[in-house]
Amino acid sequence: MKFTQRLAYYLFGILIGCMFLVYFFGEKKTEFCYLPNCRVLKDLRSKPVVYSPEAENIFKEGWVTDDDVRNTLTYGKVDFSKSNIEEESGKLYIVKGKNEAKEPIIVEIINYSDKVRLKNIKKGE
């Protein structure tokens, strides 16, 4: 068998194998989430959110919305130098993100075992 025929069989096998992988893994909706930032944000998103009175007052001001907080918990960056601090029998996390107007915001969240409490939202630097 010539080299070109072997190469064609090899590439055909790789093509079929890739199609099987796309079919099986495409339906599982798997997600690569092994980095620390991703794991913390995924844990915060998986729990119900309770708003503090300070956060509710900030929502009434109108410069930030609930959707901005959700987007920050999806695409934001956790500031680990100021986070993972014990507070009120939970852990405080500082997440930096942006609102709809592309202004930086800082979200302070306390992570409990069964819920997440939105403590405060500040305008970022």
Score class of each variant (00 low, 15 high):
37 N>H: 05
4 T>N: 03
39 R>V: 10
58 I>Q: 01
54 E>P: 00
45 R>Q: 15
49 V>N: 02
27 E>I: 04
44 L>Y: 03
10 Y>S: 13
60 K>H: 03
52 S>Y: 03
16 I>D: 02
47 K>P: 06
55 A>L: 05
39 R>S: 11
38 C>W: 01
18 C>E: 09
61 E>H: 07
28 K>S: 10
60 K>E: 09
47 K>Q: 07
12 F>S: 12
34 Y>D: 13
58 I>C: 01
55 A>R: 04
54 E>N: 13
49 V>K: 09
59 F>R: 01
27 E>Q: 13
47 K>W: 01
59 F>Q: 02
44 L>E: 06
33 C>F: 00
62 G>Y: 02
53 P>F: 01
48 P>Y: 01
52 S>C: 04
4 T>A: 10
47 K>E: 03
6 R>I: 09
10 Y>H: 08
15 L>V: 09
17 G>I: 09
17 G>D: 05
4 T>F: 03
48 P>I: 01
21 L>G: 12
5 Q>V: 07
40 V>N: 03
32 F>T: 12
41 L>W: 10
23 Y>W: 14
23 Y>S: 07
22 V>N: 10
50 V>T: 12
28 K>W: 06
43 D>I: 04
29 K>M: 07
6 R>W: 09
26 G>Q: 04
5 Q>M: 01
11 L>W: 06
43 D>S: 14
38 C>G: 03
49 V>M: 14
22 V>L: 11
7 L>D: 00
28 K>P: 02
33 C>E: 06
60 K>F: 06
13 G>K: 02
61 E>Q: 15
12 F>I: 05
61 E>D: 12
47 K>G: 04
35 L>E: 14
49 V>P: 00
40 V>P: 01
57 N>S: 11
51 Y>Q: 06
